[in-house]
Structures are given as structure tokens and as C-alpha cells.
Nucleic acid binder design. Structure first.
Lengths: 157, 157
DNA sequence: ACACACCCTGTAGCCGCTCCAGGGTCAAGG
DNA sequence: CCTTGACCCTGGAGCGGCTACAGGGTGTGT
């Protein structure tokens, strides 16, 4: 009676790449499903739902740790949900912080860009000059603040 | 005449960790310095300036590729600086895009959070319920959009 | 003689995937 | 019966930008 699906079907149904699904299993986010005789993964409806849940959390930029916590809460219907609220609040705070950082960054970048309106020799480029100048505002200090964030949002593929 | 400094001094002077400096050398951002008899790195003033330049770029969240390009332009004073401007414009665009994404995210998170005002049993928690619901707006679609960005700004240490 | 601060190389880990090599399984078509 | 092709498996490497550690050498002071 239980309809099961293979990994490819599950991937198509959720829009998740096969390799990512296997990765979630290895990472302990998605429980390992039953196997058919030939060793293929046989997923149930519950797996599909959990995978969709994971993806929605990821779409909200939650880390695996956070998702694991949420899954745990979900599996304990009698627990009280304060922790969920707290987790979400903290996550929102992190996102807000990151936005503020990036906005500061953008302002700096725009002011830097405004230094050079016309095309000149690199030697005279005000942008390169400013980047080379040690006394350029608290830019360097900012580095430690942004720490761990840099290069994060890199262009896809 | 040339005052040289060891890696520890350079680190202190720039606020960059020793391991990071060695990493930049390996990554081709900072040229490998002369060595003393015992094999210690002996950095010149030029190294210090280049490292500071790199850190200012990193503080502006530029990728290593971008920094390498900038360093190249800097080393070609006769080239024209249009490329610098273009690079910066693209970088600004990326930052702006990321900000917009995160703002959308924040709005979603806040509306999700607003679902649960009081503390209840996890079973009844509207947040968990909404995350479990497949038809919750185009959240899932957003996933592919944010792709490559998730988990990026993780809390430092 | 020893402690201690500093330096070296090389390797592994973090996150969230993504991709690849090298194989097995199974149904349809020649 | 054999091949083709779509699908599946495992295990490992790679991305960026570091960070941390193991296991050693060097140089100064007590």
C-alpha cells in the first residue's frame, strides 16, 4: 500500500538534486530510507515531507544545525515551542545584522566608485589609490567585523 | 637599509593572523618574501602595503579573484582603469542583489515568527506547521535563487 | 640545561553542496 | 542473447577563505 519512490523521483518531486538528497542523509538531516533488494533507496511520503521541510528551512537560509533542532522539536509534539521561537528570533537577528553589514559595505563601495568617473591610466586611478591608502576610514577595522562572511554570496556556478 | 620584518611582526602591524598571511602567499595574493638563513620569511615594506591593500579589499568583501585582478591593474600603471571601474560596479551589483535577497528573507522570517506569539506545545506551533506546509508561498522557488548563499554569513567562531 | 617565544611545513577541518570515477541493475529494442 | 540507455550505488575530491593543529626547528634569556 505504501507508495515508495526512488531517489530520482523524490528529486523531481521536490526540485532537489539527487546528490543533495544523499548529502542530507549523510549529514543526518534526512533519515536513511528502506532499501530495495538491489540496494536502491525507497523513500516514503514522510521522507518527501521532511525533505520539503528541510528545503523550506534552507530557503530561509537556516543552517543545518538549526534545521536539525527544528526537526527535533517537530518530533516531540509534547515539548513546548518556546525554543522554536527563540531559534527563529536569533536567526532573524543574524540576517538583520548581515543586512546592516552589507549596507555599510555598499555605501563604502559606492563612495569608492565615485572617486573615479572617467577612464584614466591605472597609475592615476583614484580607486586604486584609495585602496592603497592606509588611512582610509575604519575600513580595515570593519574587516574583523565582517569576518566569516566574506565571499559568501559568490556568483552561482 | 631595507627594514624587513618577520611574519609575526607583519601580522601585528596589519592585524592579520599569521596563518592567514601564509595562506595568502599560497593563494598567490601576496608574493613570497625573501628568506633569512634559517628559512624565516623576511617581509619588506612593499609586502606590508600589499597585505594592507588585500585586507581593505577583503573588508569590502571582494573575492580573491577580484583582488588578484586589482593587484594586476595596480602593477600596470599604463593600462587604463576602466576595468577597475567595471569590476567595482559588478561587485556593487552583487552586494546590492544579496541585500535584496536577505531583505526578502527577513520579511518571510518575520511573518513566520509572527505566527506564534505564545508558547504552546510543539504540536500546535504555527511555525512548525507552516514550515511543514507544502503550499506556503513561493518559498521553495526562492531556494534556487538564494543558491550558493545559504549559511554563508555564519556566526564567527 | 632548560624554558619559552617564535618560526617552518603539511594536513585536515569548517559549510553546503557539486561533481566525478568506477561500478551495478534493469527494461526495451535489435 | 547482446547492447543501449536510464537509472542507481559508494567513495572521494573540490570550491572559498580561512582556521587549527601536529610535529618539528631556531634563537634568546636565565
Amino acid at each position: 500500500m505504501e507508495t515508495t519512490m526512488r531517489i530520482g523521483e523524490l528529486g523531481r518531486a521536490t526540485g532537489v538534486e539527487i546528490e543533495t538528497i544523499r548529502y542530507y542523509e549523510k549529514a543526518g538531516l534526512l533519515p536513511g530510507p528502506a532499501r530495495t533488494q538491489n540496494g536502491y533507496r525507497a523513500y516514503s511520503q514522510a521522507h518527501l515531507e521532511q525533505l520539503a521541510f528541510i528545503r523550506r528551512c534552507r530557503a530561509l537560509d537556516m543552517a543545518q544545525d538549526e534545521i536539525r533542532d527544528l526537526l527535533l522539536f517537530k518530533s516531540q509534539p509534547e515539548a513546548n515551542c518556546e525554543c522554536v521561537n527563540t531559534l527563529l528570533d536569533e536567526h532573524i537577528a543574524h540576517v538583520a545584522t548581515r543586512i546592516a553589514e552589507l549596507q555599510g559595505l555598499e555605501a563604502q563601495l559606492r563612495s569608492l566608485r565615485a572617486q573615479c568617473k572617467k577612464i584614466r591610466k591605472a597609475r592615476d586611478c583614484a580607486i586604486l589609490q584609495e585602496l592603497a591608502q592606509p588611512d582610509a576610514k575604519p575600513v580595515v577595522k570593519a574587516a574583523s567585523h565582517v569576518k566569516g562572511a566574506a565571499g559568501a554570496h559568490r556568483r552561482g556556478k
